[in-house]
Design a protein around this nucleic acid. Structure first.
Lengths: 235, 235
DNA sequence: ACCTGAACACCGTTCAAGT
DNA sequence: ACCTGAACACCGTTCAAGT
């Protein structure tokens, strides 16, 4: 059942004067939802707010989506599509895997409020299948069998999605413009009792140094090192 | 519900004895909150529900916590404490790291509704410091310097927490009834078009086979393999 | 000192009625 | 065919008033 949604556009002849700017559609609703999320965060996304932004009654949206949750699912598909659309495999299987992981993370950080809401429930739809096909293709190319490829696929996807949404959640918590809280985080670790936590204390000054970009690259590097070591086909 | 075991009805002197059973306290409120979360999931945790369960007005709770968010933070500390309390380092540094990761995951899966709510905002408090001290101690023992230990610490903690909460989120989504949706997940992947997604199709039957326990162990194994390879001190 | 009850400003969803 | 408006059953938080 693909695409029973978009209501019939009005006939060309009826187009006199201004088109009704408030004609609803699934796409227009998703656009508005994304705009609210990006500007004001997850809590601002309510049906009433959406109706106001769209110039409609807040219940009109329910003609296009079965409920708020359905809107979230539609946004989830957009998020994963943003990561996968236009991606081309790299020169090596490892480059392909690294590149796709970076794109997923980038999409999550570009829409952190959305990532927080939907990352653990990516809808199994077209964009996700395309991503899966690319990842599994790279793993088969690396020399893994079907069973192993399935395993590594799940590991890489789980870690990438989990870390990306985790990071998005921190970004949201710190507030859109608050750099201050990250300093607080570091300060608390630096203030932990050296008597009670000697190992922690000896390392604390380094804890806040690595930035998030480096951190993600580092973890993916670790993971792919292990995958490569097991593949028997170093790139 | 009547309470036949309740203390003697209030008399003139009762006030000087033990407090009435419905006396509020932070601990009693956290107990009640945890009970609601475990029985009925994240959405059931409301101040009104908490008040009802505690036999109090729903606003009385606000005398002990500054708001609902403050209750969540209190629960977060309990979650991490459950993972860390009583843990002893293993015979090797790798065993220590594996053991602690398993405990964090187990605590998250024991309280999935809680893990979903708080995993990305673990409060930097006592239990977390104890965990950090253990992990960093193991990494120093593995031969890493302070800077490297800080890096690996963050990687291991991020992946463990992110994957555990991610998994908890899936467990919650599948609903307490379970099982049904995991089959649906598998079915959708099996039904993906083999023409459009040939690599995916060739591997799909294996995708749903690995259970979640194996999956977590597998990822931690990959990560620790890479850490061990870089340590220059195989266990 | 601790708790209650009412009030306030919100939610998502349903549904009869309008156009 | 599409949308509105009222209604329903909820939220978290504040605060004057009770005991």
């Amino acid at each position: 059942m693909t695409d029973p949604d978009s209501p019939a556009p009005r006939s060309a002849g009826a187009r006199r004067g201004r088109p009704p700017s408030n004609a609803l559609s699934r796409e227009r609703i998703l656009d508005a939802a994304l705009a609210v999320l990006e500007r004001e965060g997850p809590d601002a996304l309510t049906l009433r707010r959406l109706g106001a932004d769209l110039g409609s009654n807040h219940t009109a949206v329910l003609r296009y989506f079965s409920g708020k949750d359905d809107i979230l699912l539609g946004l989830a598909e957009r998020l994963i599509a943003e990561a996968v659309d236009g991606f081309e495999p790299g020169p090596t299987w490892r480059a392909t895997l690294t590149g796709l992981a970076r794109r997923v993370r980038r999409a999550c950080l570009a829409h952190p409020a959305l990532a927080v809401l939907v990352a653990s429930r990516v809808s199994r739809r077209d964009a996700e299948f395309r991503g899966a096909d690319l990842v599994i293709g790279a793993l088969l190319e690396a020399g893994f069998g079907a069973r192993e490829s399935a395993r590594y696929y799940r590991s890489l996807v789980d870690v990438t999605l989990a870390m990306s949404s985790f990071e998005a959640a921190s970004a949201m918590l710190d507030g859109p413009e608050r750099e201050g809280d990250r300093m607080a985080w570091q300060r608390e670790y630096l203030m932990a009792s050296p008597q009670r936590f000697p190992q922690l204390a000896s390392v604390a000054p380094h804890l806040a140094q690595a930035d998030e970009d480096d951190q993600f690259e580092f973890v993916m590097g670790l993971l792919l090192d292990a995958v490569e070591a097991r593949s028997g086909r170093p790139v």
